[in-house]
């Protein structure tokens, strides 16, 4: 137990970095994932194809591969980063957006087709139908799965610890090495700080879900 209190600054540092990775990747993934979902339902075949191929490849390969790609392959192609955090954010948001796209797409499918027909019949263009009518309703129905994906993102960010980013897990690894006699408590501390992010997220899901529910 003492090991946690003695090393609070390291934990705090790792916690903030995990929070930072999660928030930034989460925002990028939400935006890019929604764009991917929109592409998937668009009338343009090339966009639909791109979205489908992207989602299928990324969703069905391990996150570690996305990290290797961002941290090792991209620099070889001439895209280099000053900090490993950038590679971590690229990998996490690219990976998570595939899951977001699938969730949003299922939400789009849950909106009755009559909503789109009514919107089209008053003269809205496809982009307006999507952004004004379909997505606002779709996003409300997919808040629970979206929060699940974001919770997974917070935990997935621990992979960055293996790629020289001293986030929560990375700090935990160092602490475990330095305190071989108290590894269990070091890990309990790590778990506690993850829960500090993920439990409020789950709670937030409940609140938001109740707030934005639409009756039909």
């Amino acid at each position: 137990m003492d090991v946690i209190i003695e090393n609070l600054p390291q934990y705090w540092d790792g916690f903030l970095r995990t929070l930072f990775l999660s928030v930034v990747s989460g925002i990028i993934a939400l935006i890019f994932g929604t764009v991917l979902a929109a592409a998937r339902v668009s009338p343009i075949a090339a966009l639909r194809g791109f979205s489908m191929v992207y989602v299928e490849i990324v969703r069905n390969t391990p996150l570690t591969i996305a990290f290797f790609f961002a941290a090792v392959v991209l620099p070889r192609l001439g895209i280099t980063f000053q900090q490993f955090e950038v590679a971590a954010i690229i990998a996490l948001s690219a990976y998570t957006s595939a899951f977001i796209a699938e969730a949003v797409r299922s939400g789009v499918n849950s909106v009755p087709v009559g909503q789109a027909e009514a919107a089209r019949s008053i003269g809205m263009k496809f982009s307006q139908v999507l952004t004004l009518i379909i997505l606002p309703q779709a996003l409300r129905t997919v808040i629970p799965p979206l929060i699940n994906i974001l919770i997974a993102l917070v935990k997935n960010s621990s992979v960055a610890g293996a790629f020289y980013v001293l986030e929560l897990f990375g700090q935990g690894k160092q602490l475990a090495n330095a305190n071989g006699d108290a590894v269990v408590w070091v890990l309990v501390g790590v778990a506690f700080f993850y829960l500090l992010i993920t439990i409020p997220l789950g709670y937030l899901a409940n609140v938001v879900e109740r707030k934005v529910a639409i009756a039909r």
Binding site: P43, G114, Q115, E117, A118, M124
Partner: peptide
Amino acid sequence: AEGKELAKLRADVGMVFQSFNLFAH
């Protein structure tokens, strides 16, 4: 066919559906 021109024309044609289809949100 699909596109801006069709949207423009639809604006001139009012449609009332069996299932109302009011925007639920």
